[in-house]
Simulated assay, not measured.
Amino acid sequence: MTNDARPEASAPRPVLVRHPVRPELAGLVAGIVGHHERVDRPVVRRQVAGSLIPLVLSFGTPLDVIDLSAGEERGRRTSFVAGIMPGHATTSFEHEQHCLQIYLTPLGVMRLLGLPGRELAARVVDLADAVPAFDDRLVERLHEARTWPRRFELVDRVLLDLLGHGRPVEPFVAWMWRQIERSGGRARIGELVEQTGWSQRHATARFTEEVGIRPKTAASVVRFEHALAELRDRPAAEVAAAVGFADQSHLVREFRRFAGWTPTELLRTEPTTAQAAIG
């Protein structure tokens, strides 16, 4: 894969309408966003790695998943779910993107969708196949609702209903994930495992099954997210020290791994990230 998949410089900026997450869904849903964008020529974008899982309910033209650096299921998608990605993705579309996006946390996948994260990790799957509640009838109802407030109200009802039918997350797995998240990816995994009281093998296996990636990989993704946020305001050397990289070279290697670009290259682009969409 080449490193020239930058957004079209002349493409108009998309319209994003953000909806507050209901308190009942805190920790499970990170954001709900309405997205509408029209373009006069094909747009190619790269989505960098992230810890959130997007569910996309589309009313517009399909999105082509051109490449996944660490995943499967390339091809054309309308409504889809993209599991936690320990790598970057390249997508393209023509004419229009018009959709409602729900960003789940790794804990939300189990609790709301009833699916272990492993089944979705590093994959892009048609949404109705993965989650029957998000079928074509729901997409039609959302489209017919016409206004974003009405659409958000409908989605809230669906999510709250799913909350009552999902699967509980293993408590020690949820605790490990929250420690990784709160530490910005700097938590020592061995120490976390020791505090759970389980063996390294069991704790790693259960975490990987429910979250979708191994604990150390999860920590690396979260640390990358924090570094990316810091990089917009601070020099790379300062960021490397602040977020726990061994040195600036280590930071550069991780950016190549998770974004496909060096930090300098990344700052010259406008990568699409879930965090940017919900921030």
Results as ranks from 00 to 15, higher is better:
Leu52Gln: 10
His19Gly: 04
Gly166Ile: 02
Ala277Gln: 15
Pro14Asn: 03
Ser51Lys: 08
Thr90Arg: 13
Ile66Pro: 00
Phe152Pro: 03
Val56Lys: 04
Ala237His: 10
Ile32Asp: 01
Thr204Gln: 08
Phe134Ala: 04
Ala276Tyr: 13
Glu144Thr: 12
Ala240Phe: 04
Arg146Trp: 07
Val43Gly: 08
Leu55Phe: 10
Thr147Lys: 02
Phe152His: 11
Tyr103Ile: 01
Met85Ile: 00
Leu163Ala: 12
Val17Pro: 02
Ser79Ala: 07
Val56Met: 03
Asp126Glu: 14
Ser79Ile: 06
Glu153His: 12
Gly244Ile: 09
Glu194Val: 01
Ser10Met: 06
Pro86Tyr: 06
Asp40Lys: 11
Arg214Asp: 13
Ile66Cys: 03
Glu144Pro: 00
Gly31Arg: 07
Arg150Asn: 12
Arg146Gln: 13
Asp40Cys: 03
Thr262His: 05
Ile180Arg: 04
Val21Gln: 10
Leu107Ser: 07
Ala187Trp: 11
Gly75Lys: 09
Pro132Asn: 10
Phe80Arg: 09
Ser69Trp: 06
Asp156Asn: 14
Asp64Arg: 13
Gly34Cys: 10
Lys216Gln: 11
Glu230Pro: 00
Leu228Ala: 15
Ser92Asn: 03
Ala174Tyr: 06
Trp198Phe: 11
Leu100Ile: 12
Arg18Met: 04
Phe152Trp: 07
Val43Cys: 12
Glu94Phe: 06
Arg77Gln: 12
Phe224Asp: 03
Arg256Val: 04
Pro7Cys: 06
Val169Cys: 08
